[in-house]
Simulated assay, not measured.
Amino acid sequence: MSAKKMSSSGAICRRYGYELPDDALRLIFSRMCFVDQIRLSLVCKRWKTLLEGEDITPTDRLPWIMFYGWRTELADRKELVKSVCKLYVPSEKKTYTVEDGLKGQEDRGKFVEAEALESKNGWVLFQQNSLINKTVPMFLYCPFTGEVIDDLPDLNYLAEKATFSCSDPSSEECVFFASRRIIGLLNISICRRGDQDWKTIQVVDPIPRSCKRDVVYTNGTFYCLFDKGALGALTVATKEWILLFPGSKEFSCFYYLTDDDDDGQLFMASWDSPYTTFSFDFRRRIWVEQAGCMDRTVVFLGAS
């Protein structure tokens, strides 16, 4: 279907009103990277609805790298927040600036001296890196949309490690986790959005004066990895803490923890060469060295 229109030069122009069917658009959208999909979602409501469907995923699945920095400056006798927030896409070797995603000085002010604790599926969990009235405000930020979620209760300590349970922290089902060592003890806190306070328990530090390496969530449980391969678990429903593995001198390297979302299996990967991986045997409560590769799993340990 087309409509004819006479241009100022006398030529006849055709304007086509034909629209591609949804299936064709989905096929085109699925071949585009995340940044292009974000731009296309702004074209019209129909495209936005299609792109929000679960059947369309970006072509590249590599990790994104986020750079951010926030500071205050005086301008016209007013204190303004200057920001730099960039995303680097390894698959495209491109850097995207998203610093203008935040609206207004009120939101930008949250990021001054804030510390990023965890990132998952485009969301970043921050804590303001100073005690305000003996509490620590925490909030979430999505650099792709500029959305800020700041209705988490304040924590009464600066967290050393923190994470959240699901890919969509805006969901009421999402559980947040934070922890910190205090003289031989370990403070572990959890909450949900809308809670007035964090629920905190204190447990004996399994490896005193060591570093807590990683925290992951799977099947209703937060798993904490410590030095020497020590592994603890906090069940969200019962708030019960259990030490699954006390640690061993055999594991002297630095290790990082990951999980398999399909079956809840835990993997531990060493930082130092030789790069060894272990899976956790829940029945015997020991780490077992992986003879082969980790099926469908890629672990990025950083530059060496």
Rank of each mutant, 00 (worst) to 15 (best):
M1F: 14
S2R: 09
A3N: 12
K5L: 11
M6H: 11
M6P: 02
S9H: 09
S9D: 15
A11N: 15
I12Q: 12
G17T: 10
Y18C: 07
Y18T: 09
P21E: 10
F29L: 04
M32N: 10
C33R: 00
Q37A: 05
R39A: 09
R39C: 10
C44W: 02
R46D: 04
W47L: 08
W47H: 09
W47T: 09
L50A: 05
L51H: 01
P58H: 03
P58R: 01
T59E: 11
D60G: 08
P63E: 03
R71D: 03
T72E: 13
A75I: 05
A75R: 14
R77D: 13
P90I: 00
E92W: 02
K93T: 07
K93M: 06
T97L: 05
V98E: 09
D100C: 07
L102V: 00
Q105R: 03
E106K: 13
G109D: 02
G109A: 02
F111A: 00
E115C: 14
S119L: 07
G122Q: 05
V124T: 09
L125P: 01
F126N: 01
S130D: 08
L131S: 08
L131C: 08
I132K: 13
I132R: 11
N133Q: 11
T135E: 15
T135H: 03
V136W: 06
F139Y: 07
L140G: 03
Y141Q: 07
C142K: 03
P143H: 09
P143V: 00
G146W: 02
V148Q: 04
P153N: 00
L158D: 01
S165M: 04
S165C: 04
S170G: 11
C174Y: 01
R180G: 06
G184F: 06
G184D: 01
S189Q: 03
I190M: 05
I190K: 01
G194M: 00
D195Y: 02
I201T: 07
V204I: 11
V204Y: 07
I207Q: 13
R209W: 13
C211H: 12
C211L: 11
K212R: 13
K212A: 08
V215N: 01
V216H: 04
Y217Q: 00
N219F: 15
N219V: 09
T221L: 03
T221E: 07
F222Q: 01
F222D: 03
C224P: 00
L225P: 05
D227G: 08
K228N: 14
K228L: 14
L231E: 03
T238M: 07
W241H: 00
L244E: 08
G247I: 04
S248E: 07
S248D: 14
F251A: 08
S252Y: 14
F254W: 12
Y256W: 08
D259L: 13
D262C: 06
G264W: 12
Q265S: 15
L266Y: 09
D272A: 14
S273A: 13
P274I: 01
Y275K: 14
T276F: 00
F278A: 15
S279G: 10
S279I: 06
R283T: 15
R283L: 15
R285S: 09
R285W: 00
R285G: 02
R285Y: 01
I286W: 09
C293D: 15
M294Q: 11
V299S: 06
F300V: 14
G302K: 14
S304W: 12
